[in-house]
Structures are given as C-alpha cells and as structure tokens.
Simulated assay, not measured.
Amino acid sequence: MNELVRDIAVPKNWDRRGLPGWCYHSDALLELEKEHVFRSHWQIACHVSDVPEPGSYVTFDMVGERILVLRDKEGRVRAFNNVCRHRGSRLVTAEAGHCRGALVCPFHGWVYNLDGTLRGPSRPDSFPPLDKHEFALAGIETEVWLGFVFIRLKPGPQASVAETMSPFEAELSHYQSGEMIPAGGFWGHESPVNWKSVRDVDNEGYHVAMAHPSLQDLYGSSYFDEPFVAGVCRSFATYNPHAGRRWSVRQYRAVAPEATHLPAELRQAWIYYGLFPNNVIAVTPESVQFYQEFPITRSRTQLRGAIYRYRDEGRGQRLARYLAARIDRDTMAEDVQLTVWSNEAMTSRAFAGFYLSDLEYGVRSHHDHLRAVLPVMTLDEAPEEEGMAETNARMSNRI
C-alpha cells in the first residue's frame, strides 16, 4: 500500500447513515443541486485531442445549459454557451465537428469568430450598430489539466483543477494522458434513477465481490477505496495472481503487453480518480477514460464518457483495450441494475435509510461533501417543496 493510502483512515465511531431517502426524490432539492453542486463545480467537458485543430468543436448539455468547447485560431481551447445572442438558437447541433473559420447560426445566419466575438448579423442594415464584444458568445471558465478540458459554469468553492487534483498529479502523469488521442467517440446512456444513486454505487467497492464477477476475477482481492478528502478520492487495484476464470479477463491478461512505459507498481493497476461531485478519470495500462453523470430530472440521469489511447498503440495494447472495454461494459450494465434497485427502494415505507460498512466510507464522505454545500440535506425529514430553497438558505446563513 503506497504512501497516499497510509495517510487516509476511516475514523472511529463515524456515523454510518447516508443521506435520507427524500433527498433522492425531491424536485426542489434537484434545483438546488443544479445551481450549487453542478453549475458551481468543475466538470470534465472533453480532452484536448477531441478539438485537435482550429475550428474543431465538442458540444454537450448539462443541467439545462448547452456547452460548446472549441479551439480558436490561436490554438487556445475555449468554452461558450451554445446559444446565439440573437434568438437563442443552438449554434452547432452535432456532438462534435469542425467549422471553417467561423460559427454560423443555422436560424438567421449570425456569424461569430472562433474567439466568440460577433463577426456580424445577416442583413446588418436591419439592426443598429452591434458591438462585437457586447454581443459576443457568453464565455465559460475553462481549465486544461493533463489533457482534460474542464469547465465551470459559475464561480464556486473549488480551487483550480490543478490545485484540487494535485494529490494525484504525479501518479497520473506517468500515463501521459495529455498526449493521448480518442479511441472512439463519446458514449452516453440514460438511466431511470436519481444521479446520486449512480454516484453511491460508484463510490464503493464493497459490492464488487458479489455484483461484478469480471472485476472480482481481475482484481477483487486487491481493490480498495479511499474516501473523498477535499473534493477528491481514489480507488486502486492490481491484478489477482490467478486472474482468468472469466473469458474477457483471461483473454485480457493473455494479450496485454507488459506496460514498460509505466513504473513497476502501475503496470498491472486499474485506478479510478474522483473529483466532486460527479467526475471520474480511470486509467489502465492501455488507456485513460473519463465518465460522469448529470441529472435530467429527479429520476432520470444522463451518463457520459469517452476513452483515449496512446498515439503509437501497438496490436497488443489495442486488443487489451478492447477487452478492458468489454469488462467495463458488463460492469456498467450490472451497476445500472443496482442503482435501479437502490433508487426505487427510497420511496418504500420499508426503507429505513443507509447503514454503511467501513468499506463504504467513500459513500459517506461524498454525502458529507453534499451536506456541506446544501445543509438542507442534513434533515431527516423533507421540508416542504415550496420552502426548500428558503430552508437551505436559512441553514446556510444566507438570509
């Protein structure tokens, strides 16, 4: 166990209760989460290789906002609201693509430069003079860290991504993620649960032995989670000595070349790095990926992610990456079912709340982060929906 792990321990006599069930089925709470959890914290938008040249862009939607990430003529990666300043149309509708020198609104033909400034409206004589900066696209705070492009919709409590993720930078730097390229497009999946149910499952490995036979075969005996501390967490595992009972695992171990580009302690490791509230960067010897979830409604969640590979990937790495993706695909399907079962129980009279194992302290510490942002979540009983925001503001000493 490395130095980072030895410094983190589960406190004695900690409260084993998680969030109360009402927090998973409240429309009013979801609106507070959108504003104070999702819009105010860093989110992974894409990787720099997704926008490789000037005019390349990526789009996605989150919590009612439309995001556009593009590379400008100077090579800088920028982010804007994908909203025309004229009538609010989407400027680009594809998930990813390339525009030649400018963004042209498909509604009325307004044109924007790649730095977001207004080049001009169509039929300019029908408008008074328009200042190119006053009518520029609304910019979004952006930071690039180890090749990943992060955005933040409004100022929030987190420091820069580099400062927040600094406990893991040295370890993750060995993978040279900034030099990787896409292994395919973005993937997405809509799940019929509250977003926190997705995060609850992902924040603990206690269920791996029972629910994930492939992961248990590959690395179950060594897997351990670290709790959320200052907005970040980490899960670490190395291959079991006799892994190979499952077909995908057996083939993966057979074809994967020795990862000599990595330090010895990482050559047989799968590692997951979490950034509050909902981002994960996962590494294997062959690839790096990110995944996250965004609430659509209180009972619908959008999962999103992408995988990146080494530019000079060999045949063995390619086959290993394919097999690792098969293992991940099965794992996600198993997790989706677990989240459905857990989420639907929250409305049952038989559900008396969580009672967490020491191995689930990652769940508790993530819930503690949520309570710190939204103290209304400390209440055992739900306040009235109409008064949710006022109750939370009073508890936060905001009014």
Rank of each mutant, 00 (worst) to 15 (best):
A9T: 11
C23N: 05
C46Q: 10
D50S: 12
V51K: 13
V51R: 15
V51P: 10
P54D: 15
I67V: 13
V69N: 06
A79E: 10
N81R: 15
N81V: 02
S89K: 04
A96G: 10
L103K: 07
V104L: 14
N113D: 14
P128D: 06
L130A: 11
K132C: 02
E141N: 03
G147M: 07
I151Y: 03
R152S: 00
P155H: 11
P157Q: 14
V161E: 09
A162E: 14
E163R: 12
A170E: 14
Q176P: 01
S177R: 05
S177P: 03
G178K: 00
V193S: 09
N194V: 00
E204W: 02
V208D: 09
S214M: 12
A230M: 10
V232T: 15
V232S: 10
R245P: 00
R253L: 05
P263A: 01
L266N: 03
A269V: 06
W270K: 03
W270F: 14
Y272G: 12
F276M: 07
F276A: 03
I281Y: 07
S287Y: 06
T297A: 11
R300V: 11
R300S: 13
R300F: 02
L303W: 00
Y308L: 09
R318G: 01
A325K: 05
M332Y: 02
E334K: 07
Q337S: 05
L338K: 02
N343E: 06
A345H: 07
G353H: 01
R364T: 08
S365N: 01
P375D: 03
E384T: 04
M395A: 04
S396W: 02
N397D: 09
